[in-house]
Design a protein around this nucleic acid. Structure first.
Length: 629
RNA sequence: GGCGAUGUAGCUCAGUCGGUUAGAGCAUACGGCUCAUAUCCGUAGUGUCCGGGGUUCAAAUCCCUGCAUCGCCA
């Protein structure tokens, strides 16, 4: 049996839809799985969803659903997304599965029996509106930030895990195993955290305030804390304690996570395993955040990038390539559609796609669709240099991928792609084809080009598998089988005589409209009922005057069936007199406010670009107060 | 407030143990080629290596200090 390789993503919390960060973790895991398959390892790839806890209950309430159907819906979104992105996980686990719940209860009981879980009462500040405890520092002026009410001091009894007992052991383990948590900055962060005394972990929630969870086996009045439940997915999915998968793939796990869930994975999880007498996972690999257009991704800014939309617009492989190429694993990176388009056009279409296209069409033109045989006796230093470059590229890329430096691995592959382009230009096959006696050399050159491409095709497989599979048949290979690293470590694997299909554009160029901003960030989708909350009315501007000491503000009197005073920031683009008599569109139910001390009872719609604004008007004979929708 | 990371070309970043003239890609300009997806190849640049101080024959690199951004902790 070959050496096992077990890779996991976090199980994603179902309180919100998939975003680009989820896509990154999962794509990286997929690429690693593919890479280690090529290396001949016995691989297993797990992903899934985390579904319990009060945040899910609240998100479900907001959506007007019960937690179970809400979790089903979001979980299905994740499950449906992964095939779209070319991801081939071996298992999709949900914490709502009975098999998982059984394992959680088994482990809880096991730890309870060792005496590391104790029952205790504690006092805290509880907001009944939020149904949760707050710490002092979370409060604003001593009040709940959501409900603006003072939380009440209540006491509650709960079960706790003795973390402190394992603190020194864990710190030592991390110190002794430098590759336990990587990159180093996160390892240091955890070690710094462990210098302070660890508080015991509250691992239960009373059912009086949370029912959506797994019942404690030793006290049915409580459910398990969501992290204690969720982390165990990594072994419950393998059928712990007796499953074949568990015996085969534990504990050689690589857990991939983003930095926001470092603490549960680096501290709670090892201690849980230790307390339950289970061997520790081997590696925790921590990556950074994706910012979007230079700002933090957040629901309130409305800049959350929907991976499915990107895939539908640009294709799965370009998206995968961009994510893997652009982020230095461990550091934050920036996502923008203009950067994505630039990568697609320069790296994928121009460098690789065009190289492939020019090479294949020369095989057609000069050799009637058949890979020629290299001729001995006409080799030059250029040929041996190319072969050496190919072999060393494979070695370098392998080393970088194993070290999670995916961007560097891809860079080394693309350096070789550039060398192939240069090799073609230097040897100028189109000239050889015309020269008398150039035939032997032409055969050799074109064989080498195709052989180089074969190796590229193999090395890009982990990152852009669909493209790699498309390319395979040009080398006479079965698209459904995969390369092994040893196939790629030797020059000359390509068989002369292979029939090469007609050239295709692997990556169409993305047209960038001149001067236009290519990246369109759309706010999150809304329901029609959300739109209906707006009350838009046609109105006629009766009066308009500038507000003193303000550059942009105008005070308007608008008839919308009743007279409204509205302050509008359009003074830089419109003179007051221009507006009088215009039929404008007014947001009639906007909460009144004061701008520079002047009351404004509504808002006028305007298209705003950086320099100017344009007020849309209603054409035709429309009564003031007419609804606009 | 404590700890840590980062700061290098217009942009994104690499830069090993302190050691030649600080590099790559993208973008820009010019030249070449015609097999190719208006692609490819070549040439050309531009630098207060965040500021200040120190150690050294020699500092982007080591030390101190200030600033900025970010993270963890309180």
């Amino acid at each position: 049996m070959s050496q096992p390789f077990y890779i996991t993503t976090p199980i994603y919390y179902v309180n919100s839809k998939p975003h680009i960060g989820h896509a990154y973790s999962t794509i990286i895991a997929d690429a690693l799985k593919r890479f280690y398959r090529m290396a001949g390892r016995d691989t297993y790839f797990l992903t899934g969803t985390d579904e319990h806890g009060d945040k899910v209950v609240r998100a479900a309430q907001e959506a007007g659903m019960n937690p179970k159907s809400y979790a089903d819906e979001i979980s299905d979104m994740f499950r449906a997304l992964w095939p779209e992105l070319g991801i081939e996980h071996d298992q999709f686990i949900r914490t709502s599965y009975p098999e998982h719940q059984k394992v959680v209860q088994y482990v809880l009981q096991r730890v309870y029996d060792t005496g590391d879980i104790y029952f205790s009462e504690y006092e805290g500040l509880y907001c009944f509106g939020c149904e949760r405890f707050y710490t002092e520092k979370e409060l604003v002026d001593g009040k709940c930030p959501d409900h603006k009410t003072a939380p009440e001091k209540i006491s509650e009894s709960n079960y706790f895990l003795k973390m402190s007992k394992y603190q020194d052991w864990l710190a030592n383990h991390i110190k002794k195993n430098p590759d336990f948590i990587t990159p180093e900055r996160y390892r240091n962060e955890v070690l710094a955290f462990l210098k302070e005394p660890l508080e015991d972990l509250c691992i239960s929630r009373p059912k009086t305030r949370l029912q959506w969870g797994i019942t404690l086996p030793f006290d049915d009045k409580y459910v398990a804390y969501v992290w204690f439940d969720a982390l165990l997915n990594y072994i419950s999915a393998l059928g712990y304690p007796d499953g074949e998968l568990f015996k085969r793939y534990w504990p050689v796990a690589h857990h991939i996570i983003a930095k926001d869930i470092l603490k549960p994975h680096a501290i709670y999880w090892p201690i849980m395993l230790k307390a339950a007498g289970i061997p520790l996972y081997k590696h925790l690999k921590v990556h950074g955040y994706w910012n979007v257009d230079e700002s933090k991704m957040s629901k309130s800014i409305g800049n959350v990038v929907d991976p499915l939309r990107i895939k539908n617009t640009y294709g799965s492989d370009p998206f995968r390539y961009f994510l893997a190429r652009e982020m230095a694993f461990g550091l934050d990176s920036n996502f923008s559609e203009s950067a994505l388009i630039q990568r697609i056009n320069s790296d994928l279409a121009n460098d690789l796609g065009n190289l492939f296209s020019r090479s294949v069409s020369m095989i057609h033109k000069y050799f009637g669709c058949v890979v020629p045989k290299p001729v001995s006796g006409v080799e030059t230093d250029l040929d041996s240099a190319l072969a050496e470059d190919a072999i060393s590229m494979v070695k370098t890329a392998q080393k970088e991928i194993e070290g999670f430096a995916f961007h560097k691995g891809l860079m080394s592959i693309w350096e070789f792609i550039n060398k192939l382009n240069k090799y073609i230009d230097t040897n100028a096959p189109w000239s050889l084809a015309k020269e008398k006696g150039g035939r032997a050399r032409l055969q050799t050159v074109m064989y080498n080009v195709m052989e180089g491409l074969r190796i590229v095709c193999g090395m890009i497989f982990p990152f852009i598998p669909a493209t790699s599979q498309k390319m395979r048949k040009y080398f006479g290979l079965d698209p459904d089988r995969i390369f092994t690293l040893s196939d790629l470590s030797e020059w000359g694997g390509l068989k002369p005589g292979v029939v090469v299909p007609k050239a295709i554009a692997l990556f169409p160029r993305v047209d960038v409209k001149k001067g236009g901003d290519v990246s369109l960030t759309v706010k999150p989708e809304i329901e029609f009922k959300d739109f209906e909350t707006l009350d838009l009315r046609a109105g006629i501007v009766l009066e308009a005057e500038a507000i003193p000491n303000s550059k942009k503000l105008l005070k308007l009197k608008v008839d919308i069936g009743e007279e409204r005073q509205i302050v509008a920031g359009i003074g830089a683009s419109y003179a007051p007199a221009d507006l009088i008599g215009k039929k404008v569109i007014v947001v009639a139910n906007l909460k009144p406010t004061k701008l520079m001390g002047v009351l404004s009872q509504g808002m006028i719609l305007a298209a705003v670009s950086q320099k100017r604004c344009y007020v849309p008007t209603v054409q035709g004979d429309v009564e003031p107060g007419t609804k606009v929708s």
